[in-house]
């Protein structure tokens, strides 16, 4: 009984995490300028990481893989937002203004 409950909970978490990745991806493509796009993309670094890893840890149960997943989750939660910050900071320093009015659909985000 508990197993089924945990399984359902874990799948809910995994689905929500997948939805976050999807929203982040759509946002990264559709939002108007650089800062809003990395704002959307950072959703995959934080919320999606938390949800997906929580779901996977529930699947793994109390075992060594759970500890490894926890370590990977901590690593991703530390590095993802830092990378987003560094990206935004570099853009700001190179002179890209975070102005909501201007629609700067520049070439950087749309390679190929």
């Amino acid at each position: 009984m508990i197993d089924i409950g945990l399984d359902i909970l874990s799948w809910i978490l995994l689905t929500l995490g997948g939805a976050c990745v999807l929203i982040g991806g759509i946002g990264g493509l559709r939002l108007p300028n650089f800062y809003t796009r990395i704002h959307a993309a950072s959703l995959t670094d934080t919320m999606a990481t938390l949800l997906i890893f929580a779901g996977m840890m529930l699947q793994a149960g109390l075992s060594l893989p759970t500890l490894k997943l926890l370590a990977i989750m901590l690593f991703l939660l530390l590095t993802g937002p830092t990378a987003t910050y560094a990206l935004a900071n570099a853009a700001l320093l190179s002179g890209l203004k975070p102005d909501a009015e201007t629609v700067t659909d520049n070439d950087k985000g749309h390679a190929g």
């Binding site: 690593f75 530390l78 830092t82 910050y85």
Partner: peptide
Amino acid sequence: HHLIPQVVGRLLVPF
């Protein structure tokens, strides 16, 4: 001069 990358980076290098 960039506090956040430096703190996080310093934390990560030994690991």
